[in-house]
């Protein structure tokens, strides 16, 4: 049976995640089946979930509207592996410091939205990811992880964490899906398969 991975599919760079995930799986010789998830029922069949980049306010409203928000929390508590990139990280964080978006608390990490500034301040630079190595990261109107809490810091940029992991949950302030580099998605697949979960354990 292929590994069934869902991507929250309302909005954002959904197809980019799907494409890179398939490439990563191919490299690892793991069979995956990737689905866009747009309603509560579709959440039932996924074995792992990606919340992509996009607008966190928009995704938050739609996840609430279609009763998916609480369901994701419940599934994650029962061990569903989740990766959130940028807007996705904001949604899975424990605190967003913005009344417009409430974090799910899947990872014990505090966020400041748009902390680097506006689009003109978006950038690309080298980071070093634990277990992956040197990596070119793309930051677009990125949030800042102000307090990683109990999560493991897997990468930093200018002394601020940019990638954190806790149990089977991964959060990134940057966008691996915008590049051709499959290593972060490979890391996530290995984590799903139980080889790469980070040390901090449950919340």
């Amino acid at each position: 049976m292929p590994l069934n991975i869902g991507i929250i599919g309302f909005q954002g760079d959904v197809s980019e995640h799907a494409e890179l995930l398939k490439k990563a799986a191919n490299k690892l010789e793991v069979e995956v089946s990737v689905h866009e998830v747009r309603n509560r029922t579709q959440l039932d069949s996924v074995e792992a979930l990606i919340i992509p980049g996009g607008e966190s306010t928009t995704m938050f409203k739609l996840l609430k509207l279609y009763s998916m928000y609480d369901k994701i929390i419940e599934l994650a508590k029962n061990g569903l592996p989740v990766m959130g990139t940028c807007a996705g990280l904001i949604l899975i964080s424990s605190k967003t410091n913005d009344e417009r978006v409430e974090g799910m608390g899947l990872i014990d990490t505090e966020i400041e939205r748009n902390a680097y500034g506006r689009q003109i301040d978006s950038f690309m630079d080298d980071i070093d990811i634990k277990g992956i190595g040197k990596y070119k990261a793309v930051f677009i109107r990125a949030p800042v992880i102000s307090k990683p809490g109990k999560a493991d810091v897997l990468a930093e940029y200018k002394n601020k964490p940019v990638m954190v992991g806790q149990g089977k949950v991964l959060g990134l302030t940057f966008h691996p899906e915008l590049t051709k580099d499959t290593r972060v998605h490979e890391y996530f697949i290995k984590m799903i398969e139980g080889e790469g979960s980070t040390s901090s354990g449950d919340l």
Binding site: G9, G12, D13, T58, C86, A87, V138, I140
Partner: peptide, 14 residues
């Protein structure tokens, strides 16, 4: 280009 086009990608589906 990548950063500019990447920004646009975040609005997809919206």
């Amino acid at each position: 280009e990548l950063i500019k086009r990447g920004f646009a990608k975040m609005t997809k589906g919206g």
